[in-house]
Design a protein around this nucleic acid. Sequence first.
RNA 1: UAAAUAAUCCAGAUGAUCGCCACCCUUCGCAUGCUUUGCAUGCUACGGGUGGAGGAAAGUCCGAACACCAUUGGUCCAGCUUAGCUGGAUGGGUAAUUGGUAACGCCAACUGGCUCUAGAGUGAUCCAGAGUCAAGACAAGUGCAACAGAAAAUACUCCUUCCGCCCUAGGCGGAUAAGGGUGAAAUUGUCAGAUAAUUAGCUGACACGUUAGCUUGGUGACAAGCUAAACGAGGUAAACUCUACUCGGUGAAAGGUUAAAUAGGUCAAGCUUAGCUUGACGGGUAAACCGCUUGAGCUCAUGAGCAAUCAUGGGUCUAGAUAGAUGAUCAUCACUUCUCGCGUAAGCGAGGAUGACAGAAUUCGGCUUAUAAGAUUGUUUAGACU
RNA 2: UGCCGGAUCGUCUAAUGGUAGGACUCUGGUUUUUGGUACCAGCUAUCUAGGUUCGAGUCCUAGUCCGGCAG
Length: 111
Amino acid sequence: MLPKNRRLTNEEIETVIRKGVTNHTPFLYIKSLLNNSENTSFTVVISSKVNKKAVVRNKIKRQIRAFLIRKKGQFKNGYNIVFITKPGVTNIKLEDLQSAILYLLSKNKII
RNA sequence: UAAAUAAUCCAGAUGAUCGCCACCCUUCGCAUGCUUUGCAUGCUACGGGUGGAGGAAAGUCCGAACACCAUUGGUCCAGCUUAGCUGGAUGGGUAAUUGGUAACGCCAACUGGCUCUAGAGUGAUCCAGAGUCAAGACAAGUGCAACAGAAAAUACUCCUUCCGCCCUAGGCGGAUAAGGGUGAAAUUGUCAGAUAAUUAGCUGACACGUUAGCUUGGUGACAAGCUAAACGAGGUAAACUCUACUCGGUGAAAGGUUAAAUAGGUCAAGCUUAGCUUGACGGGUAAACCGCUUGAGCUCAUGAGCAAUCAUGGGUCUAGAUAGAUGAUCAUCACUUCUCGCGUAAGCGAGGAUGACAGAAUUCGGCUUAUAAGAUUGUUUAGACU
RNA sequence: UGCCGGAUCGUCUAAUGGUAGGACUCUGGUUUUUGGUACCAGCUAUCUAGGUUCGAGUCCUAGUCCGGCAG
């Protein structure tokens, strides 16, 4: 789990989704926004349309967060980032998900 | 013994490392206050300690607690002798009985119906066990019943049967409901009489059943028995309806405390005096905090009760997040299963899988649905032995 | 979190508890030199599982999926 200062609150998520810059892959997309602070914060959004079971949704959240914690030394500071999943994310392999995350972050020049 | 199925129990254990949440403690730092060099409170950081999902947390199908709103009692309308009555219109829910409960559509016991199995009996039937039942009323009224059938309900006559006439292929009229046939369903049965005639509740007797009354037993549903110059009444209420009982609305995004901002308001001061500025009060939005976890709690013992459950006493505190914590990896043991190798076999060794359903969101009581492996019990089937 | 509504041929849409109908589509045939049009015939459905009933698309219960509303 991410520490509290690296998470986003409800308001921040809404502003990021409304004003952020979007980048897509077939099963995942991100919205990012500069926040003028020392930290880069993340959150993961999974709709109940992706899967009806909360256990499956929590597992995907944990997989993404664990990968972000492992890579946290490489990030630039000062971004708010929201990961939003699409239906189909449950069927792919873990390596594909991780490479998609790296692709999206590098495309935004955060890494 | 094996398999299937149903119910109940259980929902791997120990240790290490890396992370997350809550609370507590030590130290350092910062801020505020004070009796001023220390103490108190708060916050941040490092470190340490303790605790951290379920039997269904799920579905949201019922019920309750709690909070606010409305309010003379389900709702609406009207009236008046106006704080309680009357009248009218109009809904939702439940349904044998008794008990339990905060309450329930839940639970327990019991009664009755139906189904299955075993036993007794020539048989009707009786009895035991298991399962199951939205199990008030169709004998208040209304409605409905396709096709088939003569007829689907204040009855009726297709074939057959009986009588009379024409006259003998058959037709006409009358009688009957025993038999046939149709259908999911067809007007209780036996005997005798009456009749032109027969196997007609048309009449009588008996049996069966229903209803009513009485007696006995039971808290009661009900059971057993008796009586009737009462009756023979088809089905359907998960059809309308009737009867009895019962029911305010909104949901923790309820609501409460503090409170930036904005509009409009009151007061005071100052300045130019149509007014403006500042401050205070009040106002109440964002936000924060509370609500929030000590509760119809868990557990043990004793007692009451057939049981559900209740009473008394002892012990105990056991998640509280806010886009949402409770996770990941490794090792060992336990457990089941799969693969490979060795072995006649028992077994041994190596490797893999932890096995299912599934994640708190105000809290409880139920119901429903989903559940791998293992354990216990019941039922069914198959096999072996006696 | 709370609360509503719906599910019928491939698509759209009917059906009072009593043979699931129609339109478009599709398939085959006739007409035409061919295609279209027209005509004829055919294929194809009650979301799932139980119950009530003689008999459920319809009534009741449970589940699955879809859609909507509040804030």
